[in-house]
């Protein structure tokens, strides 16, 4: 469904992402992991159009998306969340999500209906009239997902949506991700928590120093000596 070919992003002389290729299949959850500074978020930004890749291609269902602006990428069916949440603080939660829903319709009443569905699904329905800025971080992370969901994506790029959540919130988030998948949305997820990523992903891609280090089923990847070594290099924290 989503195909990334030989994606490279250089900042000056430094390649933050170097020749990374991956494929996301329909209905799949693909985990993207790697130590800090591995280039995961840069990779996301290049796919989502927030940055222009230096080389390589991004294809959605065979259609070229390389170098398209972020709003075109969203329109084409790729929704994304930000690692550092970016809520529209002075808007209500419902209006935040409504803005996302405008990607599907220009009619405000329709958009409101879509927004309410997304809020229901993400468990934010009772918060709809609260101002986004006044919500605690776990809910704002949820709001990021709700907004991206309301754009009607075929693919969701989730960037560390569980960082900073407590264990029970993490469980809720995992359930939510699985629900989204059951609705036919393919998900590419960056996550630091190993336990989460291994339990939720169908496949995992490991990045290190901007390059793809390994790819495969969660169990296989976690036992790959190269991967273990990459993580040991900065203190292995798989069990947190």
């Amino acid at each position: 469904m989503l195909e990334v070919r030989h994606l490279t992003k250089r900042f000056g002389g430094l390649a933050a992402v170097n020749d990374v290729s991956l494929t996301l299949n329909k209905g799949e959850i693909l985990g993207l992991i790697g130590p800090n500074g591995a280039g995961k978020t840069t990779f996301f930004n290049c796919v989502a159009g927030a940055m222009q890749p230096s080389e390589g291609q991004v294809l959605l269902e065979g259609r070229e998306l390389t170098g398209k602006k972020a709003h075109d990428v969203c329109r084409a069916g790729i929704g994304r969340t930000y690692q550092i949440v970016k809520p529209f603080g002075k808007l209500s939660v419902r209006d935040n999500v409504l803005v996302g829903a405008l990607n599907q319709t220009r009619n405000v009443a329709d958009a409101r209906r879509i927004a309410d569905e997304a809020l229901e699904l993400t468990g934010l329905a009772d918060q709809r009239n609260v101002l986004a800025a006044s919500m605690p971080l776990p809910r704002r992370k949820r709001l990021e997902i709700a907004r991206a969901l309301a754009t009607g994506p075929k693919i969701l790029l989730l960037d560390e949506v569980m960082a900073g959540l407590n264990p029970s919130e993490v469980e809720l988030a995992i359930d939510l991700i699985k629900t989204l998948r059951s609705r036919g949305i393919a998900i590419l997820i960056i996550e630091h928590l190993m336990r989460v990523i291994t339990s939720v992903s169908d496949r995992i891609v490991v990045m290190h120093h901007g390059e793809k280090l390994a790819e495969g089923a969660p169990s296989a990847v976690m036992n790959d000596p190269k991967v273990v070594e990459a993580y040991l290099g900065e203190g292995f924290v798989a069990q947190d």
């Binding site: 159009g49 970016k86 603080g89």
Partner: peptide, 10 residues
């Protein structure tokens, strides 16, 4: 409120 987020929402 936030241009980048607005862009990302289409």
């Amino acid at each position: 409120e936030d241009e980048d987020a607005a862009e990302a929402l289409g």
